[in-house]
Write a protein that binds this DNA or RNA. Structure first.
Length: 424
RNA sequence: GGAGAGAUGGCCGAGUCGGCUGAAGGCGCUCGCCUGCUAAGCGAGUGUACGGGGUAAACCCGUACCGAGGGUUCGAAUCCCUCUCUCUCCGCCA
């Protein structure tokens, strides 16, 4: 959510910046509503001041017959106030509704562009493996080794659900533990294990609601949603809180499954593990001082890259352009892993600086000094990494001519010493 | 699921038969004084949001906020209704 005052005072400037995201954002309504709001507020408060003054007078008067006229008059004033406040509430709701659907302003260093095509490749890491045979796609490798069962996943639930078996299940679990250990022990993040369902306030706090409800799984009964990413519960840990300055930066990591409807992705990535309704992810979340958020994004990105470097998986880093960054983000770097089975780079991590956009929605503040006014923190997060996609990247990059898959060295300790996954 | 208790400021905690309570008292914190250091002591101050004035700020005026929403009343932290959450006991249960 953008700052109401900022938007009011810099409307045209804001509209121009938002236009670089593509898709017109119409704020003409906004100015008129804001004018009405101030007008109604002024009228209502003037009457309230009058009412408070006279009511105090009535209270002090012993003989109520002396103030009979005042009491009658105040009755009328109260009715007027009620009517003004009703209108005001309506205007405020409309204003809030607009504000909640306006995306974040892109960071001034964010490359301007209209689509994926305009994203900027920042760096490339690692050697793409070369094969003496035609490298297979991970779904063929996984089925060949009987460690991924796509058909039974569909039987159990439906499309875009997969059953992991044996060494496949173990590899997924090994990756989760490896990533969590790396981030907690080497990068000094605090591990969290949050609820996998959250309420509407939490979804609103990070920006999934009200705009993207159709992407979320909602449960029957209570008004809860399955989380689409750990970003939601972990960022909302400090919703409605004022943090002490010396606590910052706060660095949290969490493993959670993620649930996404993938509405609008019909027919895309229908094979394999790329796009699932349920997938595992280890997330990194930071709460930082505003002046440090750019530097913290660089660190966060580095922490995510370390995972791929230790797994020796080739990747590249892409600076997303204004047309491609998410609703709540001001700046986003994607990490894309090389998939030889498909001959392309695929997103495996997305690291973003939200600045104060989420913090304002979720009321996450800090006190720069004792006694000073509380200010909004900046929030950041990134995948460190998407586990399913990491697993499939391992299958494709570490595949052998005989159909087996070599286990990356750093994972062997997590796999009971297993060096190679072979068929049964 | 059954029975009961409760939700007040950064924290603890008081609020009488509705008015003079933004809210006693304490802790914490800030500034000043005192003190050889520490501890203690003394004095003053110490919520947030929004609107208006002044604007570099300080500051001044007004309004709202005592879990959330609604109602009664000239006037509600105080009365009524609904909801949410927390706690205790019983039952059930991984």
């Amino acid at each position: 959510m953008l700052d109401l005052k900022y938007l009011r005072d810099h409307l045209e400037q804001a509209e121009q910046r938002l236009a670089t995201r593509g898709g017109a954002i119409d704020l003409t309504n906004f100015r008129e509503l804001e004018r009405q709001r101030r007008d109604l507020l002024g009228q209502s408060e003037t009457l309230k001041a009058e009412k408070n003054r006279v009511s105090a007078l009535i209270g002090q008067t012993k003989d109520k017959s002396q103030v009979k006229d005042e009491i009658v008059r105040m009755k009328d004033v109260s009715a007027q106030i009620k009517s003004l406040d009703d209108k005001l509430r309506q205007v405020n709701d409309d204003l809030q509704a607009i504000l909640m659907t306006v995306p974040n302003l892109p960071h001034e260093d964010c490359p301007v562009g209209s689509s994926e095509e305009d994203n900027v490749e920042v760096r490339v890491w690692g050697e793409k493996p070369s094969f003496a045979f035609e490298p297979k796609a991970h779904w063929d490798i996984g089925e060949g080794l009987d460690i991924l069962d796509f058909e039974r996943g569909v039987k159990l639930t439906g499309a875009r659900f997969t059953l992991y078996k044996g060494a496949g299940a173990r590899l997924e679990r090994a990756l989760i533990n490896f990533m969590l250990d790396l981030h907690t022990e080497q990068h000094k993040y605090v591990e969290m294990l949050p609820p996998f369902m959250v309420n509407r306030d939490s979804m609103t706090g990070t920006g999934q609601l009200p705009k993207f409800e159709e992407d979320l799984f909602h449960v029957e009964g209570p008004d809860y949603f399955l989380i689409p990413t750990a970003e939601v519960p972990v960022t909302n840990i400090h919703r409605d809180e004022i943090l002490a300055a010396d606590q910052l930066p706060l660095n949290y990591t969490a493993y959670t499954p993620c649930f996404r409807k993938e509405a609008g992705a019909h027919g895309r990535d229908t094979r394999g593990l790329i796009r699932q309704h349920q997938f595992n992810k280890v997330e990194l979340v930071k709460f930082v001082r505003p002046e440090e958020s750019d530097a913290e994004l660089a660190k966060l990105l580095g922490h995510a890259e370390t995972v791929l470097q230790q797994l020796k998986l080739p990747y590249r880093v892409v600076d997303l352009c204004t047309g491609d960054i998410g609703f709540s983000a001001a700046r986003t770097f994607d990490i894309e892993v090389w998939l030889p089975g498909q001959g392309l780079y695929r997103e495996i991590s997305s690291c973003s600086n939200f600045r104060d956009f989420q913090a304002r929605r979720a009321a996450i503040r800090y006190r720069p000094q004792d006694g000073a006014k509380a200010e909004l923190v900046h929030t950041l997060n990134g995948s460190g990494l998407a586990v399913g996609r990491t697993l499939l990247a391992i299958l494709e990059n570490y595949q052998q001519a005989d159909g087996s898959v070599v286990v990356p060295e750093v994972l062997r300790a997590y796999m009971g010493g297993l060096e190679r996954i072979t068929g049964q």
